[in-house]
């Protein structure tokens, strides 16, 4: 089982959380300006990397907050987590929990 470091509650077992998919995505400000292809890219296309992945987790059975985690998708090592919206994709800047 993964151990997920919630920035507010500390490291907890994965069963307390719900996975929220790729992190760092923001909804286009004016969706109407997008072509169908660009909209599809926002809605459906994901980086899905083999390696370092920035992702959202939701502390469903805890504090209830969303936050971003940087995890390696090959060895499942968690490199850190931070409040959602902060830029933690550069792993060196990650607040270590």
């Amino acid at each position: 089982m993964l151990m997920i470091p919630c920035p507010w509650c500390g490291e907890r077992a994965e069963v307390e959380f719900a996975y929220g998919g790729e992190g760092g995505l923001s909804r286009p400000v004016v969706p109407g300006d997008l072509s169908d292809g660009e909209w599809a890219d926002y809605v459906y296309f994901r980086k899905n990397p083999k390696g370092t992945h920035c992702e959202l987790w939701h502390h469903l059975h805890g504090c209830g907050r969303y936050f971003e985690v940087v995890r390696d998708t090959v060895d499942n090592k968690v490199h850190g987590s931070a409040e959602s919206g902060s830029d933690i994709r550069g792993v060196s800047d990650v607040k270590k929990v």
Binding site: M1, L2, Y19, N48, K50, E55, R71, T73, V74, N76
Partner: peptide
């Protein structure tokens, strides 16, 4: 499993 992963293993629960 709910999360992305290439490890060919998942969580025991």
């Amino acid at each position: 499993d709910s999360y992305n992963g290439y490890s060919q293993r998942g969580s025991p629960h």
